[in-house]
Design a protein around this nucleic acid. Sequence first.
DNA 1: TATGAATGAGTGTTCATTCAT
DNA 2: CATGAATGAACACTCATTCAT
Lengths: 186, 186, 186, 186
Amino acid sequence: MSKPRQRLLGTAGRLFGERGYECVGINEIIAKAEIAKATFYQHFPSKEALCAEWLRSEMASFSALHQELLDDPRPARKKIAEMFDQLCCYVEESGFNGCPFCVTSTMIGTDSEIREVILNFRERSRSFWHSIARELGLKGAAARNLGDAWLLLHTGAITESQSVGGVWPVEQAKKAALTLADAAVA
Amino acid sequence: MSKPRQRLLGTAGRLFGERGYECVGINEIIAKAEIAKATFYQHFPSKEALCAEWLRSEMASFSALHQELLDDPRPARKKIAEMFDQLCCYVEESGFNGCPFCVTSTMIGTDSEIREVILNFRERSRSFWHSIARELGLKGAAARNLGDAWLLLHTGAITESQSVGGVWPVEQAKKAALTLADAAVA
Amino acid sequence: MSKPRQRLLGTAGRLFGERGYECVGINEIIAKAEIAKATFYQHFPSKEALCAEWLRSEMASFSALHQELLDDPRPARKKIAEMFDQLCCYVEESGFNGCPFCVTSTMIGTDSEIREVILNFRERSRSFWHSIARELGLKGAAARNLGDAWLLLHTGAITESQSVGGVWPVEQAKKAALTLADAAVA
Amino acid sequence: MSKPRQRLLGTAGRLFGERGYECVGINEIIAKAEIAKATFYQHFPSKEALCAEWLRSEMASFSALHQELLDDPRPARKKIAEMFDQLCCYVEESGFNGCPFCVTSTMIGTDSEIREVILNFRERSRSFWHSIARELGLKGAAARNLGDAWLLLHTGAITESQSVGGVWPVEQAKKAALTLADAAVA
DNA sequence: TATGAATGAGTGTTCATTCAT
DNA sequence: CATGAATGAACACTCATTCAT
């Protein structure tokens, strides 16, 4: 079995992801991670810090995916499709409960360590989409507008999928994203 | 002073909207509404029922706005703009914490009275956007695709605005929505 | 539908009998009797008074049975058998939860209106069994001893039947009661 | 001062015994045991579990007494007398409120952890009395009938003592028990 | 480093009762 | 005679956190 800290992060991440920060207590986390309560507080100063750590690791995963796609030699159009296809898998996973960042965002105040992580990630995501837009040849405001549109379709698809419990929002978002891409380069 | 039930619904609605179902306790609700705990439970069988009632009233408001726009003689393009302009005001209101339905959705299980209300509202919203698409002259899958795109941009804009604490997502969503509208009728 | 007071007594009696005084709330009683809470308090000053009234009516039923048997021309031995046969039916009824008086007795303090009713009934029951013993020809202490033995077997049978959820205690009590009767007249 | 768990069990046992499971709240238990509420729930998963634990410890005491008597070289008749003499002391103790098992039995449903303990104890008690009957030389149904009679007299004596608040039921039960014993060996 | 034990403040919910109409 | 509306106190239970070892 892995080290306490890893088990803690793994368990908490899964539970936070599945039910949301506020709907998971540390009692459940430590029970499922099979570590003592005091041990938890030796690894993390608070539940909030644990959540922040989880979001940082989520951010790392997503950032890696972003970078991978940016490094990919395929045309931008394929990358857009890829993003939504990946999202499709993501929302179909058992335990999906929406975007970790957006969901957590609704449950915390403005002056939290967590907030910083969230803002950081949203900014990175936005940058990613802007970069894709520039790969299409767009520049300045045009690139930003198109990138933002994709970002919003992506975010909307996750949110809507969570609400309705289905995958159609992702599929429809993908279509719209490609339509916008095609219109932009026409 | 108004009747307890009204105060209860008003207070709870405000608090649920501002911080989310799970982040508000009935103790706070009854304290701010200035009614006794037992009185609360004579008006609502549970916290969940209160939340459902609040969402139903929110649904009524939004549905009214939808209907108003559908009845409006202006061209569809204006209505789309109007929707996002209204959203702009909505997210700038103090206490904005995202879409009541989407936020609550992440905090409740699948077999709750609340879930039904949420699904109901998401469906109505989708229908609204489909109707607008048909006003543009589109039919069948084309209307559904465009309507869904608008819906997702709208949802994405709310979610993103909540996360980043700004209004730019709404403005960008509006642009994209209009772009899609123009592309569709071209 | 019957008068509120009757419905109240009927419903409360059934519920008190099935689950015990402390395990039934007036909310449930008035809901099942379909009368308003304030109406209840116009008929009975308190839950305790309602319970006392119920026990008084139970006492009336049992006393009637006692009197009937005392007036019966059959030999005493038959009457003893009859008492346990009746008990057999009683414990097999759905909702049986022990002797109303003994069960309630464990749930109330010493200075309650209810206590008086209970003591009254236990005394009557004891007298009944003493009378039966005298019908057998016994006198004085001998009659009291035998009557008390029957009473205790009867009480033990009810209590034990409730605990184990079966009817064998009644059957065994009957045998012992008859054995004691036979030994007394030998 | 003893450990929290011991204080908890001691306090709860005393209160449950004196007033019955349903008439004692955990607030009172923890207050009298002088431990925090959360501490209670670290030692026992629920009030029900605490009650079951208490009954298990009661069962251990009674079973020890049973075993002691079975191992005793005295004649069976003496053992029967001893059982009722002990009961006499038991019902005279301040705080006596009937048999812990029978009383609790009337306050709980059929599918509770507690029910199991109760059934277990009633069975053990019955076995004990059967064993005593066999010590008298009886076999098969005769031993079972006599043992059951004693059990029922014993149970009836406790119940009746609780109801009437006196000790005469025990004394009378003892007489009847010995009478039955004498009649059986005659 | 890891833990078992303890806690004050909170959770949502129900209690028996009262009052104005 | 009957009721709808209101209540303070209690219910069983959970929260995130701390401390002594």
